[in-house]
C-alpha cells in the first residue's frame, strides 16, 4: 500500500510540473501553430536560474522558508526572453512545420551551450532546501510539504489559466485567434501582439515549471531534452492544442513514469511511449484533441 501511495504521490508531483510545461506548449501551438521544442530549454533555464537566484538570496540573508517565492519570481523574471525568441520565430510562422521544428531544435542546442557557458557541465542543486517546510504523512508515506505546495500551485495555475481562457474577454480573443487567425485580424486584432503575449506566457509556464522542480532534483544540461520527450508524450496522449489534454496527459505520463521507476526503472520511457503508440493507433487526436477534418 505504501509503495502504491509513493508511486501516486511521486507521479502527481511530476505531473504537476509536466503540466506547466505542456500547458505552455499547448497554448503556443493552439494560438501560434508552432510546435515549440524549446519549451524544454525554458524549463532547464528556469531550473538553473532558480538555483542561482535562490543561492544568491540565501547568501544575502533570505530566511530559508522564503525560498519558494524567490524561486517563483526567478521563473517569472525569465519572461523577458519570451518576446526575443518570439521575434526569431516570426521568420517561420508561415513556413512548413519542418522549418519550425528545425528552428526550435536549434534553439534547444543553443540554450544548452548557453547554460553550459554560464553554469558549467556539472549539475547544479539547492541542497536540502526541499525539506524546509517539513514533511506530511499520507498513507504511511512521508511527503515533503514542498511537493504538496507545488502540486497545489500547479492546480491553482491550471484553474487560473482555465478561468482566464474561458471567462475573460482577452481569453476569448485568444481562443478566437487559435480557431481562426485571419478572421480575428478582420475584427481588428493585432495578431502579432497576441503572438508575443502567448509566447511569453508559454515561456513563463516552462521556466516556472523548471524552477519548481529544482529543489527536488538537480538542474542538468540533459533536462531540456528529457522534458521535451515527456512533454510530447503528454501532448500526444492529451491531444494537441488542448489544455484539458495537457492536464490528463501530464497525469498519465507522470503516473506511468513513477510506476516504471518504482517497478522497472529501465523501462520508464518504453512504458510511456507504449501508451503514446496506443493512443496514436486508437485515438490519433488524443484524449481531448479535435479530430482532424
Amino acid at each position: 500500500m505504501a509503495a502504491f501511495i509513493n508511486i501516486l504521490l511521486g507521479g502527481v508531483f511530476h505531473a504537476a510540473v509536466l503540466f506547466l510545461v505542456a500547458a505552455g506548449l499547448q497554448i503556443v501551438f493552439g494560438v501560434q501553430k508552432i510546435v515549440n521544442l524549446a519549451c524544454g530549454s525554458f524549463y532547464a533555464l528556469g531550473a538553473y536560474f532558480g538555483v542561482t537566484t535562490v543561492t544568491w538570496a540565501l547568501k544575502a540573508g533570505l530566511p530559508p522558508f522564503l525560498f519558494l517565492p524567490v524561486l517563483i519570481a526567478s521563473g517569472v523574471v525569465l519572461a523577458v526572453i519570451g518576446p526575443v525568441i518570439e521575434r526569431l520565430l516570426r521568420t517561420v510562422y508561415d513556413r512548413d512545420e519542418s522549418f519550425q521544428l528545425l528552428l526550435t531544435f536549434a534553439l534547444v542546442l543553443m540554450f544548452q551551450d548557453i547554460m553550459r557557458y554560464f553554469w558549467g557541465a556539472n549539475p547544479q542543486q539547492l541542497g536540502n532546501l526541499v525539506m524546509v517546510y517539513g514533511k506530511v504523512g499520507a498513507g504511511g508515506v512521508d511527503l515533503p510539504v514542498y511537493n504538496v505546495l507545488v502540486i497545489a500551485g500547479s492546480i491553482a495555475i491550471a484553474l487560473i489559466l482555465g478561468g482566464f481562457l474561458q471567462r475573460t474577454r482577452y481569453g476569448r480573443i485568444l481562443r478566437a485567434t487559435a480557431e481562426n487567425r485571419a478572421m480575428t485580424e478582420a475584427l481588428g486584432v493585432d495578431v502579432r501582439r497576441i503572438n508575443v503575449v502567448v509566447f511569453t506566457l508559454g515561456t513563463v509556464l516552462g521556466t516556472v515549471g523548471g524552477a519548481f522542480v529544482v529543489p527536488t532534483s538537480a538542474a542538468s544540461l540533459d533536462m531540456a531534452v528529457e522534458l521535451v520527450v515527456e512533454a510530447f508524450a503528454v501532448v500526444v496522449i492529451g491531444g494537441l492544442g488542448s489544455m484539458r489534454g495537457a492536464l490528463a496527459g501530464a497525469l498519465v505520463v507522470g503516473l506511468m513514469r513513477a510506476a516504471a521507476i518504482a517497478l522497472y526503472a529501465e523501462l520508464e520511457l518504453l512504458s510511456i511511449y507504449l501508451v503514446v503508440i496506443l493512443v496514436l493507433i486508437l485515438r490519433p487526436s488524443g484524449l481531448f484533441g479535435k479530430p482532424a477534418e
Partner: peptide, 9 residues
C-alpha cells in the same frame, strides 16, 4: 463568404 463564425464561442 464562408461566414467564419467561431465554433468555440
Amino acid at each position: 463568404e464562408e461566414s467564419e463564425v467561431y465554433g468555440d464561442l
